[in-house]
Structure formats: C-alpha cells, structure tokens
Design a protein around this nucleic acid. Structure first.
Length: 136
DNA sequence: GCCAACGTTGGC
DNA sequence: GCCAACGTTGGC
C-alpha cells in the first residue's frame, strides 16, 4: 500500500467537511506531477489530509475510495480526480513547522517541493508523523 | 528548442 | 503583502 498527502486550503475544503460528507471527489488538480501521483493511487491507499495556508498542519487520515477517473470539472478530459473518505482525525495536528524541525523529514517531499498539492509519503515518514501526532 | 515574461501556490 | 519556487506561455 502506498501513502500520500493531500493538501487543501481549509476555507475551500476542510477536514471537517470531509467528515461531514463521508466522501468527496478530489478534483481541480492541474499540475502534472500531482496528476502522476493521483494516477498512481490505489483503492485502500491512505493519505494525510493537510490544511495549507490556514493551519499549515496535517489534521487527519483519509483513504482512497476510487482510483483515478476523469476530473468532472475538467472539460479537456486531460486531468483526473480520485475519491477519498475520512478514516480518522489525528490526536494532535502536526504542524509544518514541527515537520521542518525534524531532521528525519528533511527529504519529505512536502518540505522539498512546497507547491505540490499531491505528494507521496514514504513509510518511515508516515510512521514518524503519526508518532508526532500522538498516534501509534 | 530556448528563454524571458508571467501566473500561481503557499509559506512567512 | 511580499517573495521564492516553479510551471506555463509565447516570441524568436
């Protein structure tokens, strides 16, 4: 199973909204590297849900419930979406500042390429962030 | 095919 | 509000 991190500005779409809805279409991604990541996702893969701009922290874990399909908001047919469902909220959010301060996360793509909105997470990084969240 | 100009994202 | 990073566009 692969792990990922999905970014969302909480004033556009927040963790609380995902929990309330039970599932959402992750659409609107218009970046090539992000598209490759979306296409690599499998049903059952887990992803951190990260609040960008406001909060700047990982707040929860979600799961891919449907693999890449044409983004319904894209008329060109070029871009893809996936569906995601909430799994659980982290006991404590893990801030970007805390992750930047952690030497073991120096290569985390969230930090290395801050503008990418769909990012792969290595197993060791996943475990460490969970520990920082007071989970595990 | 190169590269300057410009637009967007996201942290600070 | 500013700026760095980086992707895209368009002229040549």
């Amino acid at each position: 199973m692969n792990r990922w991190l999905l970014k969302s500005e909480p004033d556009v779409y927040s963790w609380a909204q995902l929990v309330a809805e039970g599932e959402t279409v992750w659409n609107g991604v218009r970046n090539n590297a992000a598209r490759l990541n979306l296409r690599a996702m499998k049903v059952g893969d887990e992803a951190f849900f990260y609040h960008s701009n406001i909060g700047k922290e990982v707040v929860g874990i979600c799961r891919i419930s449907r693999e890449a399909y044409p983004d319904p908001t894209d008329e060109s047919g070029k871009w893809v979406a996936v569906s995601v469902q909430p799994v659980r909220k982290l006991p404590q959010p893990v801030t970007l500042a805390a992750m930047k301060a952690e030497p073991a996360l120096a290569d985390f793509q969230l930090i290395r390429q801050s503008r990418l909105s769909v990012v792969p997470v290595r197993d060791a990084e996943w475990e460490l962030v969970l520990r920082m969240a007071g989970s595990v």
